[in-house]
């Protein structure tokens, strides 16, 4: 049953995860939470490991979630399920249009789709901030927020690689919290 749920969830994720990379996180998070495979905190750690490892972040996260929920077979099912939709769509696109991105209809759809994706990703950031105790209704965690703003600054204004920023924040975490 777990394997079937993983399969269905990651097929769905594969079909709707526009934008790649961290933009795919909210969609995965929704399914993970629905099935109770991981807590949001655990899922944040999974994203951290996925971001530090080579390879596509979403595919990495799929393997990790699949492994946690259903062992090695869960991991295999998750990675195949998340890859199949893009395989099918890319094949269809190659058959039908050569320059799909210039189709007016597709462009119009993306005119409305992109803002919704933006809203969805901001929502994911808020949700992660709340669930990891960075912010709450009556409080906020000063040290964590400092970590947040410093890493955001590093990501926006330096050419440091995101994987390296994750690593740095881990070292800083050891210095501050250990």
């Amino acid at each position: 049953m777990v394997l079937w749920n993983l399969f269905v969830s990651f097929i769905k994720i594969g079909f709707v995860s526009f934008g790649g990379g961290y933009a795919m996180i909210p969609v995965i998070q929704y399914e993970v939470e629905k099935h109770g495979w991981l807590s949001v905190q655990q899922f944040t750690d999974v994203i951290a490991i996925s971001g530090m490892s080579p390879g596509p972040i979403a595919a990495n996260a799929a393997v990790f979630v699949g492994y946690k929920a259903g062992g090695i077979s869960g991991a295999i099912i998750a990675i195949l399920a998340i890859s199949v939709p893009s395989l099918i769509i890319v094949l269809l696109v190659s058959l039908v249009f050569t320059k799909v991105q210039h189709q007016p209809m597709i462009q119009s759809a993306f005119y409305g789709l992109r803002p919704v994706i933006t809203g969805m990703i901001i929502f994911a950031a808020v949700q992660f901030a709340i669930q990891n105790n960075l912010i709450g209704i009556h409080h906020f965690h000063v040290t964590s927020l400092l970590f947040l703003f410093v890493s955001l600054g590093l990501l926006l204004f330096t050419r440091l690689h995101p994987a390296f920023v994750i690593l740095l924040s881990g070292i800083a975490g050891i210095i501050v919290y250990f």
Binding site: Y22, I25, L148, S151
Partner: peptide, 17 residues
């Protein structure tokens, strides 16, 4: 401890996306 430091960075990465 390392992951307590990393979690806010993940929020930053999502904001960046």
């Amino acid at each position: 401890a390392a992951f307590l430091g990393i979690r806010p960075t993940i929020v930053a990465l999502i904001l960046l996306a």
